[in-house]
């Protein structure tokens, strides 16, 4: 199981990339009620039967590892959110895309710590692929709110596959996070 809430997001975005999405929207929202994570994409989507399989830990999409018997990204998130008394929702339309949302209540001792958002965003931006990533961040305690787009950052900082580009973006994101 993942140690921090933002770790789950990485798994979700990988799913979106594998679903062939050209636009992935990520939201990390810390409110007084708790932490909400949301990932939506315009990938291939799933029908009801595929959706049920996606939540089964002993099933995997299988494209990458045909013989593999487990797929833990979504099942882990669902388990963690429900264990903490929060919410887990997934909606998907074949051909249109998928939306996953999880909420971890601040009042529950079983909610994982949020984790390092800057590190998460740097990792997401370093992922292979041409798709556009839109990252939204909100923090109610000090009114922090920002949105960054992968295309804008790549244009300003250079190739995000290189360590130099990522390192510049890291500084940029850290300054956003400090508010």
């Amino acid at each position: 199981m993942h140690a921090s809430a933002v770790d789950f997001v990485l798994d979700l975005v990988q799913n979106s990339v594998e679903a062939g999405a050209s636009l992935i929207d990520v939201e990390i929202d810390e409110s007084t009620e708790g932490v909400t994570l949301q990932v939506s994409d315009n990938g291939c989507g799933m029908d009801a039967a595929q959706l049920a399989r996606a939540l089964d830990p002993f099933r995997s999409g299988g494209a990458k590892h045909p013989s593999r018997k487990v797929g833990l990204g979504l099942p882990f998130l669902k388990q963690a959110a429900e264990l903490a008394g929060g919410e887990f929702r997934i909606e998907s339309v074949p051909g249109r895309g998928t939306m996953v949302r999880a909420m971890f209540p601040a009042s529950s001792v079983d909610s994982p710590p949020l984790g390092d958002v800057t590190t998460l965003f740097v990792t997401l931006l370093g992922m292979v692929g041409e798709c556009e990533l839109v990252l939204h961040r909100k923090r109610a305690s000090d009114g922090l709110s920002y949105t960054v787009r992968k295309s804008e950052l790549a244009e300003a900082a250079g190739d995000l596959a290189t360590a130099s580009g990522l390192s510049l973006v890291r500084q940029f994101l850290a300054s956003q996070e400090e508010g």
């Binding site: 990458k64 990792t123 370093g126 290189t162 360590a163 990522l166």
Partner: peptide
Amino acid sequence: KQTFDGIVAALEKHNLAGRTVVRQTGC
């Protein structure tokens, strides 16, 4: 995630960032 971030920072610190491609893969 921390490893990825640490590698990017270390490459920058040791002047290797310009000649390095950092990628991610699955399991």
